[in-house]
């Protein structure tokens, strides 16, 4: 069944917030799908990067409940290929920031097994904590 979208103050505010945080002109997106085609992690995502862009463009806050933004590793493959020179990784970061700034932690540091902490190099810990903890 097609989804009914409501354009109202709330959806407009959400769109504006993501635009400001990302610094991207999200409406430039043509939905060509190049970002999704090149994404190395798309198989693990529930919505594709281009779907993420579309949902933000429509102010659809349900995008916040998808996994995609948390799986973007900021490899920037989409960034260098976008014909509109948009940076999808910045839009994903904006969505993460909305959550993280409300004290949401994607990973709980106290719950990481000790053996994993010992094995992982510092570079992995710092990177993950920056992107995934508040």
């Amino acid at each position: 069944m097609p989804k009914k979208l409501l354009l109202n103050d709330k959806s407009v505010d959400f769109f504006k917030k993501v635009s400001e945080l990302s610094g991207e002109v999200i409406t430039l997106c043509d939905q060509c799908g190049t970002c999704s085609g090149g994404c190395p992690i798309i198989d693990e995502m529930d919505i594709s990067p281009s779907q993420l862009m579309r949902m933000v463009m429509l102010g659809d806050e349900e995008v916040m409940d998808t996994k995609t933004m948390w799986l973007c590793a900021t490899c920037n493959t989409c960034t260098v290929r976008c014909p509109r020179e948009l940076d999808v990784s910045k839009v994903a970061e904006a969505l993460r920031q909305i959550k993280l700034r409300q004290s949401f932690d994607k990973i709980n540091i106290d719950k990481i097994p000790k053996e994993d902490l010992k094995e992982l190099p510092q570079i992995a810990l710092v990177g993950a904590f920056r992107r995934l903890t508040s």
Binding site: A73, T74, I107, L120, L125, L132
Partner: peptide, 15 residues
Amino acid sequence: NKCCGSFLTVDNKEI
């Protein structure tokens, strides 16, 4: 040039 998964290695080892 393909991404290795970067810091996802902390919470998404399978990927």
